[in-house]
């Protein structure tokens, strides 16, 4: 293995350590507290919606008409159906727009 390839291996290991640090860091910090204040608890309850929204909203706004339309229909479907059906319906919408409409 040449030096350059070895550097890549080190880089991947460093990236893995950095990622693991984020996955254990919050737990380490929060377990230092004996009592969790109500405002912190409210903040933690908001984590799923707050974080996952940031993976959705920019795609909807900047993804173009086809992506936005597909996500909108999937949203409506998601109020009634399972996630797997949402995925299928959203995928059908984007494929129809890309291959049949535009």
């Amino acid at each position: 293995m040449d030096a350059q390839h070895l550097n890549l291996i080190y880089l991947i290991i460093a990236a893995a350590v950095a990622t693991f640090a984020t996955r254990v860091g919050g737990y380490v910090l929060i377990t230092q507290l004996k009592h969790i204040p109500p405002r912190l608890e409210a903040a933690l309850n908001a984590v799923p919606a707050a974080v996952l929204t940031t993976l959705v909203a920019p795609a909807f706004v900047y993804g173009g008409f086809d992506v936005a339309a597909s996500m909108f229909v999937a949203f409506a479907a998601g109020l009634r159906f399972s996630t797997l059906r949402m995925l299928l319906i959203g995928w059908i919408v984007v494929m129809v727009i890309r291959h049949l409409v535009l």
Partner: peptide, 30 residues
């Protein structure tokens, strides 16, 4: 069409938490 799968999947996850307190203001802010 696989580029829409992840955002839609995450959208489904967000919707799963819609009954929590403060759901709408949190989602709007984020």
């Amino acid at each position: 069409g696989i580029d829409v799968l992840l955002p839609i999947y995450f959208l489904g996850l967000v919707l799963g938490f819609r009954k929590r307190d403060r759901f709408l203001p949190v989602v709007a802010a984020s």
